[in-house]
Design a protein around this nucleic acid. Structure first.
Lengths: 249, 249
DNA sequence: CGCCTGCTTGATGACAATCAAGTTTAGTGG
DNA sequence: CCACTAAACTTGATTGTCATCAAGCAGGCG
């Protein structure tokens, strides 16, 4: 499948062979239950931009494979990453308006683009589907608020601990086998821009955690969590956020 | 109308005499268009808690009057205020789940409680209504992401400038007359917990802005913005977020 | 009037940002 | 296959800024 230029979108037509398992968090295709005849699946490079901040919203993006980030940038270049997204995640809502963040691929990514109009048609016909969209928005909002307390009130150590646990959650959702090796597709800079720190600080905390035997760094982008319990304690996660509440990532 | 204890909810029946003007941002009642026969309007004290974090979601709260805040708390007492809400704002989504923040009244507040079931019934019958809910979620998500870049990447001065402009927006939406006096119903501590600072720092920046003639402090909870343009520049707001994009607060 | 709470200002110190210098890794071409 | 280059990552030294601790100040209410 050819790569797509960021400016121009080539559409390829697919009739998907899979059925939604919305509740099955291991293998998710949120918006596929209604099985539209035609879907557009695109492939993106690392660092390729999928949509720009302030672009009119035309599509909902459903990640089929790979990792994607969303961010906002200030005029002097300061950047805040607002989220990382992996297989099964959906970015956007079928409303009239503009994207409030830029969407960019981190790894090679396959992304299913659902047109806004298509979405709205589906909503009209299927109230269940509509509920799923609202549930999705609710989950995104929960994530955003969790990140707000991280950025506003948590120490650098706590933020990194929370980030690592989030990575673990992504990993276990991506790979069916309970592999303890966690891969970090994003750069140190990305982690810094997500946690509101500098990359040097992120590095130092990684090293500190390594010295404390909390983690093992196999490579700069592969690690193992040795002491899940203590990380959880350190992360100061609000209640059951990480475990009990069902989410689809 | 009697005040309500936080534990037990007294319901009063109202047949509302007003019709929605969803697009009219000055006088908004988002969820009233369908005119349910019976609605529950409650009054809350300052500091009275409307719902606790992790409570099951039973209601959507629509603010009719007053100011309300939502926040999350860590086990050692650190607090992050995730939003302030005024007349016309809606808190919550009709999903199965739990509130991810505590909702508390700042001033005396009249709040219309829409039961989740009622909401879902309305959604089934009125696709327009459903779109409004999704639009509402989208706006909340935009606010949250705007706050994320504030907390993660903006300087204290920029955060306070942005906060003041937000207050002005609330003020102009609340009061029809374009009064230049802005009232701050929330305490310095609240502002600190919203902007990720300490109350002393908030004070110092207020004083600094006062010395720079950017603002005039009439009382500790009343001020005037003297140099809107410079505040806007200082706040580093991402593009048109403050002006052009229609929002309902 | 006096207390209490919330706000303001001052002095000091901790800690993450900054600046800078290595080190490792991945990618390229001979 | 190895040498070379560039980018990403890591570690060190120093500084600036905001949190902290502490002391006044002002307004509201009994």
């Amino acid at each position: 499948m050819p790569y797509t230029s960021p400016a121009k979108i080539n559409t390829e037509q697919y009739s998907p062979s899979f059925i939604t398992h919305f509740e099955n968090r291991k293998n998710i295709t949120v918006y596929s239950k209604a099985r539209p005849k035609v879907r557009n699946i695109l492939k993106y490079h690392p660092n390729q931009i999928i949509a720009f901040e302030n672009d009119p919203i035309n599509y909902l993006y459903e990640i089929m494979a790979g990792t994607v980030k969303t961010y906002k940038i200030l005029n002097d270049g300061r950047r805040q990453i607002t989220g990382f997204y992996t297989k099964g995640d959906v970015i956007g809502l079928p409303v009239d308006g503009r994207y409030f963040h830029t969407i960019e691929a981190i790894t090679e990514a396959s992304i299913c683009c659902h047109s806004k109009i298509q979405m709205k048609r589906l909503m009209d016909s299927d109230p269940d589907f509509t509920l799923k969209i609202i549930k999705s928005a609710h989950d995104r909002l929960r994530d955003a608020h969790e990140q707000m307390i991280s950025l506003g009130r948590k120490t650098p150590d706590e933020r990194i601990a929370a980030f690592l646990l989030k990575c673990q959650k992504w990993a276990t959702l991506q790979i069916a086998t309970q592999n303890s090796i966690i891969s970090l597709p994003m750069s140190r800079m990305d982690i810094a821009d997500y946690t509101g720190l500098r990359q040097e600080t992120v590095c130092r905390i990684f090293s500190k955690f390594k010295r404390a035997k909390l983690i093992t760094l196999l490579r700069s982008d592969q690690l193992i969590l040795n002491n899940h319990r203590q990380l959880l304690k350190l992360a100061n996660l609000s209640e059951d956020n990480s475990e009990t509440i069902p989410q689809y990532h």
